[in-house]
Design a protein around this nucleic acid. Structure first.
Length: 583
RNA sequence: GCGCCCGUAGCUCAGCUGGAUAGAGCGUUGGCCUCCGGAGCCAAAGGUCAGAGGUUCGAAUCCUCUCGGGCGCGCCA
């Protein structure tokens, strides 16, 4: 409907343009919105206000001219100029009700569009280091990224979901060494575990696997391991300490055995993360290995490309990328004085590769604490000759958990509630997925665990799901009374109650909500919409009986209610939340 | 110090990219089932949109400054 009206307006403006009244390009100014107040009709536009100056006439007068030039349309009952120069559209009753049949006919497809025209988009999200289980902080990135991906798909993009696996850095060496040290402890030796090592129980678990499957094959005397290693903090430097231990692990194990421990740790943790996300309803098309970037020489190629383009220089024995010429606040090292690539160098290569894989748009979902990193990645794309505007970096603020009116401490040490797995176990997948995307991404999120678990109206997830289940229940009642839903028998024109009109209007808005949420990367809009729709439904349910003797009216009301159910189901599907038939 | 995000009802937040009288939920107060699921509904009270300037027909929304909160500023990943 909205599109129809927009095209009518475009035609009107085109006529006025050929009369020389409005400038070329005016059509792009067309912006149609739903009215908040019913006395302003169903849709309104402010084009006349926006174009008044360029047209050189008062807004109201221009509005009148536009209305006069507007082609007639059967769904439009009346068009009027109001206020300072708004043009308000009033639709016919039939137009209001038409959406009900549209929803029922389109079913699961209702709300989807081909706006993206199948263009390929890559969405990269979570990408947490595989050095431990997913933290509750990663959960928001997971829920948000997955929902943004779903939304983009719904509006017609071809979406590729990707997880970038940082399997090549120093953190992974620390993990492998931590596992090996725990393994040495399992062989019965005592040692002082490094303060900088990974302390979690999962490290013990991996070490136990190694011990169970390979006995003492990976053992070495602790005295040899620690011989000549500089002291740990607080007496010494913890970084130097752990680096020396990594070196010792590599030396004593040799390349092959070290790599085995490393890969065992990586595979175990990655399996855990994959499983965790799958149970959270988050599935990837690809897990992209940083190590593969290095091994294929892509990192070297990326640096070489920058060098050839004249954006690399040497200083203090290191290679620097002149990112400050592309909007970054300072230049950045890509190759350290010890010859190793920095993490940033891999990231340049990774984004170069993304572009080369032919995506139209790139979406990165990052934790907001990485925001300082945005300019340098964009700078790299620009320096490589690509358009940085093709990359959208979406920053997600942290979530703070609350229980019993208190902030939940989330330190690894306290052993309190830290993993996504635990969160899922406590509040369930549906509540977790919904709560994570309830707020816009750049807003800090207060995640109320008690509320997420409560089964009441206070809890928006249950409130929405309950509306869906209630419709299912109505259908069960229908069958018990020996009736069936007969859509052909429905006389939609009988739906004249204001609550029925409100519901139909809400249904008509759904495709626009999806499009808006998708293009703006704002899943919270869909979450809010569904709550409003559920509210309109509950109000209707309480006020009007559906299962009445009058077949034409009964089937009309059932049509409306089933359409509501369909839209709730479609919306929840995009959010990754289930739509139960009974609760 | 510099940069990014945020500041809207007692609390948690929306506000459709500058529109018409700023909206929800919770909480508070008062109501509603012999009827399709009370995990529900209705109503009332509650606002200097942090503050001050500016831009214009029109600002919670855009610009500048001030105040307050969060985060970030490595040859770490």
């Amino acid at each position: 409907m909205k599109n129809t009206l927009e095209s009518l307006l475009a035609q009107a403006l085109e006529r006025l343009r050929s009369d020389g009244l409005v400038p070329a390009g005016a059509v792009r100014q067309v912006r149609l919105t739903h009215t908040r107040d019913k006395s302003h009709g169903d849709y309104a536009t402010n084009v006349a206000l926006a174009l008044a100056k360029a047209a050189g006439m008062p807004p109201r007068e221009l509005a009148e001219r536009i209305v006069a030039a507007l082609p007639a349309h059967p769904a439009v009952r009346r068009v009027e100029v109001a206020g300072p120069g708004f043009i308000n559209f009033f639709l016919t009753e039939g137009a209001h009700h038409a959406v009900i049949r549209q929803v029922l006919e389109a079913g699961a497809r209702y709300g989807r569009s081909d706006r993206g025209a199948g263009r390929p988009v890559q969405v990269e999200f979570v990408s947490a280091n595989p050095t431990g289980p997913l933290h509750v902080g990663h959960g928001r990135g997971a829920a948000y990224g997955a929902t943004v991906a779903n939304l983009l798909e719904a509006v017609g993009y071809r979406v590729h979901r990707e997880y970038y696996v940082n399997d090549a850095g120093r953190q992974m060496d620390i993990l492998a060494t931590s596992v090996w040290l725990r393994y040495l402890e399992l062989t019965g030796q005592d040692l002082a575990f490094p303060s900088n090592g990974y302390q979690g129980d999962y490290v013990w678990d991996i070490a136990a696997t190694l011990h169970r499957e390979h006995g003492e094959d990976y053992a070495a005397p602790v005295e040899q391991v620690y011989e000549g290693v500089p002291p740990d903090a607080p007496a010494g430097d913890r970084e130097a300490h752990i680096d020396a231990l990594i070196g010792r692990a590599k030396a004593l194990l040799g390349d092959i055995r070290y790599r085995y421990v490393f890969d065992l740790a990586l595979a175990t943790i990655l399996d855990d993360i994959r499983d965790d996300l799958e149970k959270f309803g988050v599935v990837y098309d690809q897990w992209y290995s940083e190590r593969s970037l290095v091994e294929r020489g892509l990192v070297m190629q990326a640096v070489e490309r920058l060098r050839k383009a004249g954006h690399i220089y040497e200083k203090n024995g290191a290679l620097w990328f002149r990112s400050s010429e592309f909007g970054d606040e300072k230049d950045r090292v890509v190759v350290r004085d010890n010859g190793q690539f920095t993490y940033f160098a891999s990231d340049i290569a990774y984004h170069m590769d993304k572009i080369e894989r032919g995506y139209d748009r790139l979406v990165d979902v990052w934790g907001a604490d990485h925001h300082g990193y945005v300019p340098r990645v964009k700078a790299a794309l620009a320096a490589l000759g690509d358009d940085p505007a093709r990359l959208d970096i979406l920053l997600v603020q942290f979530a703070v958990l609350w229980r019993g009116g208190q902030k939940v401490q989330m330190s690894t040490r306290s052993g309190e509630f830290v993993t996504l797995r635990q969160l899922r176990k406590e509040v369930g997948r549906d509540a977790a997925r919904f709560f994570y995307v309830m707020r816009k991404a750049e807003q800090h999120l207060d995640f109320d665990l008690d509320l997420a678990k409560s089964r009441s109206a206070d809890n928006p997830v249950y409130y929405i799901q309950y509306a869906h289940a209630r419709v299912a229940s109505v259908l069960r009642q229908l069958a018990e009374r020996g009736w069936r839903f007969e859509p052909q028998a429905a006389e939609l024109a009988r739906l004249t109650d204001t609550r029925e009109e409100d519901l139909a209007a809400a249904l008509a808005r759904y495709p626009e909500i999806v499009e808006h949420a998708a293009l703006g990367h704002e899943p919270h809009m869909l979450a809010h919409y569904l709550r409003e729709l559920a509210h309109a439904f509950h109000t209707y349910y309480n006020a009007v009986p559906f299962l009445v003797e009058d077949s034409a009216l009964r089937n009309a009301r059932l049509s409306l209610v089933l359409a509501v159910q369909q839209v709730i189901r479609n919306g929840l599907e995009l959010l990754g939340v289930s739509a139960p038939e009974r609760m």
